[in-house]
């Protein structure tokens, strides 16, 4: 598809029409027309975004939007770089790759640190600290300090059977400790705040 200078992808925000670099306006229009003809009616009423991969002057954009709108699609605007699709196509951070298994309680004054993911089979006691470049999973009571994604990985999560950390942070964002001990909790980063949610919401 991309050989034609046009590719279309469905995202949560709507259809994204990629306009590849190395093609001129006429080629784009021709190929777009062919795409939309062949899928006649299918895109009817859909919302779309444009994602040009080279400089796109306003009058050219207007022409393209006019063409696409003729097939019943609604223009939302330019695709913003760095939103859902862009982050999804990023390579996974290396922190997702390996897991360090720690099979003991982590006691006051002890620090267990892992470059990547960390699984503690045991409790993390008050006064202890567990930290990882990736996610931290505690198969036991989490009552000490916990830091996930300590090198800035925002997709890191913290999971504990019993969740009552004295301090917690994900990718440098910290949150106040929960007021009481929670059972089977997953903490994840949502924007600039940490969300606590049940590990098994449907149970």
């Amino acid at each position: 598809m991309s050989r034609s200078g046009i590719s279309i992808k469905g995202t949560r925000e709507g259809l994204v029409i990629f306009l590849d670099a190395g093609y001129d306006l006429e080629e784009w229009k021709q190929n777009l027309k062919r795409h939309l003809e062949s899928a006649r009616g299918f895109f009817q009423g859909a919302r779309f975004l444009l994602h040009p991969r080279r400089e796109l002057p306003a009058e050219q954009e207007k022409e393209i939007v006019e063409l696409v709108s003729r097939y019943g699609l609604i223009y939302l605007g330019r695709k913003k770089v760095g939103t859902a699709l862009a982050t999804r196509t990023q390579p996974r951070p290396p922190a997702e790759a390996n897991t360090h298994l720690y099979r003991s309680h982590v006691r006051a004054g002890q620090i267990v640190s892992a470059a990547e993911n960390l699984v503690v089979v045991g409790d993390v006691h008050p006064g202890a600290r567990v930290e990882a470049g990736g996610s931290v999973i505690v198969c036991g009571n989490l009552r000490g300090e916990v830091a996930a994604g300590k090198d800035g990985n925002p997709s890191a999560v913290i999971v504990a059977y019993r969740f009552a950390p004295l301090r917690l942070s994900i990718a440098g964002v910290s949150a106040p400790p929960p007021p009481s001990s929670l059972v089977m909790v997953k903490a994840r980063l949502e924007g600039k705040s940490i969300l606590l949610e049940p590990l098994f919401p449907h149970r």
Binding site: R107, A108, G109, Q110, P126, G127
Partner: peptide, 12 residues
């Protein structure tokens, strides 16, 4: 209790 925990860690 906190100090006991610390000491248990050191003993282990």
């Amino acid at each position: 209790v906190r100090d006991a925990d610390r000491v248990i860690g050191l003993l282990e």
